[in-house]
């Protein structure tokens, strides 16, 4: 089993709801707290498992805004695990989730150095490394309704841009989406084989505008009258 996320860059609106839901769930979960520093100060900072960045792709007028949520990719060849000297970082055999055992971590930062995706953040108060757990305390919780056994970020996404599932199962929704939408991984050239997959924006036909009628004298007068009546 290879559990991971599939994120649709076509529908992601960049609202940061996934990051907030993640922070809310995990700060009170098994890996919490996600310490904040000067939360109400001039320069608020803190630990987040999920961050959303916004990019402009292409040059005007053929440009497009792309919102890119990023959390741990739960890589198959996770260097953060191999460089860890204490054995605090580990990858679960049964489902591929990469975790940190906070009781073993000595806070040397080396795993964060080895991660190109910025998935690991040191909690300066606890002195240990923290990262996305794929909401392991949710997805296996049998007291929850089956539809709730998903990561908090997936459940909360208002644009349905996030999907959770087993990428080893060719018939799962995430595998199907990856196949049909030509899902891609980030920085594949580094060879970490990330599990999380991103669906690129769909190539859509441009909306035709040449048949839009030009303004005539009558339509201008009508428009003016309509506006005057509304006022």
């Amino acid at each position: 089993m290879r559990l991971g996320l599939v994120i649709d860059l076509d529908t992601c609106v960049g609202c940061h709801a996934c990051a907030v839901a993640c922070k809310q769930w995990n700060t009170s979960g098994t890996t919490g707290p996600l310490t904040d520093i000067a939360a109400y100060g001039a320069e608020p900072s803190g630990v987040w498992f999920n961050r959303i960045r916004h990019y402009e792709v292409g040059d005007y007028p053929n440009n497009k805004t792309v919102n890119m949520p990023m959390s741990c990719m739960h890589c198959e060849d996770a260097d953060c695990v191999t460089v860890c000297p204490t054995g605090a970082s580990y990858k679960r055999k049964e489902d591929g989730i990469v975790l940190v055992d906070q009781d073993k971590c000595m806070g040397c930062n080396l795993c964060a150095w080895a991660c190109p995706y910025g998935a690991r953040e040191l909690d300066p108060v606890d002195g240990v490394m923290k990262k996305c757990t794929l909401c392991i305390d949710r997805i296996y919780d049998e007291t929850l309704e089956p539809e709730d056994r998903q990561p908090a970020c997936v459940i909360t996404c208002p644009a349905h841009a996030r999907f959770f599932g087993d990428l080893d199962d060719p018939d799962s929704q995430v595998s199907r989406l990856t196949r049909e939408r030509a899902g891609q991984t980030l920085m594949p050239e580094l060879g970490y084989k990330p599990t999380n997959t991103y669906l690129p924006p769909r190539v859509t036909r441009p909306v035709p505008t040449d048949d839009v009628r030009r303004k005539s004298l009558i339509s201008s007068v009508k428009e003016w009258v309509n506006q005057a009546i509304v006022r």
Binding site: P44, A112, P200
Partner: peptide, 20 residues
């Protein structure tokens, strides 16, 4: 970012102050 067919620029890093 996976967008290899066009130039990519950052619009917003998603946070106002420094992070880890």
């Amino acid at each position: 970012t996976g967008f290899t067919r066009a130039p990519v620029r950052i619009l917003d890093p998603g946070h106002t102050a420094g992070t880890f």
